[in-house]
Nucleic acid binder design. Sequence first.
DNA 1: AAGCCCAGATAGGCTAAGAC
DNA 2: GTCTTAGCCTATCTGGGCTT
Length: 248
Amino acid sequence: MHESLTIRAYTRNVASHQHNFCQLVLPLNGVIKLAMHTFEGAIGVGEGIVIPAGTNHAFSANEQARFVVADLAALPAAFARHTSPKFLLSAALSAYLQFVELQLQQSTLMTVETTLITLFKQLLTPHHIHRSAGDKIELAISQIHQYPESVLSLEVLCRHACLGVTQFKKRFREKTGTSPGQYITQVRMQKARSLLQFTDMPVTRVALEVGYNDVSAFSRRFTTVFGRSPKHFSRRIKTPDEPKKVTF
DNA sequence: AAGCCCAGATAGGCTAAGAC
DNA sequence: GTCTTAGCCTATCTGGGCTT
């Protein structure tokens, strides 16, 4: 099949139908109402819904609605563990979809669409796709992904999930396969590595950005997780091949 | 099923020393 | 000045068993 990204707008009522491919619907503006056997409700900006191949679905979109529809040959791996078809997008992925809209409206090159789809599929990772806030544990997970630098004690997370500590720990492990503490560390270290690789922030600043008030504690944890010190990943390292800065 | 308790493990803060 | 590493200490987390 031909995989594609398209921008669609206001749609009154589309009767129940199905495709032999997987479809993701991602609002850029307005609200879309969707009905299928595993879900019935509305999705807005910052959310998305996955419609597996062969699933009957009907939908309508309000007058303000504008949304990206991605037709994909297979269900992306990031959705394999999802129990709900609804999901949340990271701020970075939402920004990318805005960029996609502009490019699709302005570019006439087929290669651009191909590149946009390729990158879109690469961004469909747990780092950018969070489960919908419809579940109590998902609320806590969403909090971890949105604010990894904040105080994320068990007490705080239990409050977000409206659960007791025992229930929270049990359900969290069932959902994620790991403990809350280890999950938080994973998220923080992934973010730290990205900041080191793609910004010129010093290690001390990166430590603060991911919730460590002490750089030695951050360095120790980072080295444990990745096997190399933060400085190894830092852009601030000058390699022998790096061109010398020319000043005028 | 949910909550409580507890021993052991782990994380994070602080300090100091040393490399670059 | 920036960063890493190590030692020490305290707080918090984890996982399992027990109770309600």
